[in-house]
């Protein structure tokens, strides 16, 4: 089936089997291998990308359902010589060891900070009607859809907290 995808500001024409997941379309057909395939069942978060400003598991959605959507992958967040604030913070805080989950962690955290800014509550938010802050507890809960088998969680949380603080000052 023929359709177009808008990824990191570029439009791509594709002709794919409708079974193709968004993740497989990105990796195997557009050469964007930053997004990783971990479990392929929405359990690990390594495939997290941002679609229409929202983080989703790209393994659990069909590419053909996203025609017209604005899709951002880790490649669209920054480049080696122009890192995004979270990418820089992950380097500074050792937010990874093997690095396989890192693109998903960074896409997830990027959108997650936007969710906090919008005032979305989480399961650990005590009062549903007050503005939440990016505390360790809030970050851990909100990032539970991203697993790190190297268990670099302390570094990941530190990196996200640092960016949350920088953004709050900005």
């Amino acid at each position: 089936m023929q359709f177009e995808l808008d990824v990191n500001g570029e439009r791509h024409a594709l002709d794919l089997d409708p079974r193709t997941s968004l993740l497989d379309a990105l990796r195997d057909h557009l050469g964007l291998t930053g997004s990783k395939k971990g479990c392929d069942h929405g359990q690990c978060g390594a495939c997290t990308v941002i679609v229409e400003g929202r983080r989703i598991n790209s393994c659990l959605t069909l590419a053909c359902m996203h025609e017209g959507d604005e899709i951002t992958t880790v490649e669209g967040l920054g480049a080696p010589d122009d890192l995004s604030p979270l990418q820089r913070a992950f380097v500074e805080h050792d937010g990874y060891q093997c690095g396989y989950c890192t693109p998903g962690q960074i896409c997830s955290a990027t959108a997650m900070l936007g969710e906090i800014e919008k005032g979305w509550p989480s399961n650990v938010t005590e009062d549903l009607e007050t503005q939440v802050e990016a505390s360790i507890e809030e970050i851990s809960e909100r990032m539970s859809g991203n697993l790190c088998r190297c268990s670099c969680y302390p570094g990941i949380v530190d990196a996200i907290r640092q960016v949350a603080k920088e953004e709050a000052r900005a």
Partner: peptide, 27 residues
């Protein structure tokens, strides 16, 4: 996250937030 749900039907917000992950709830 709907303000009306959080105010008037908080048990529904709580149940939703107790389920799945941020990525899955977005979909």
């Amino acid at each position: 996250a709907d303000a009306r749900v959080r105010r008037g039907w908080p048990v529904l917000s709580r149940a939703l937030l107790a389920g799945a992950s941020g990525q899955l709830r977005n979909k």
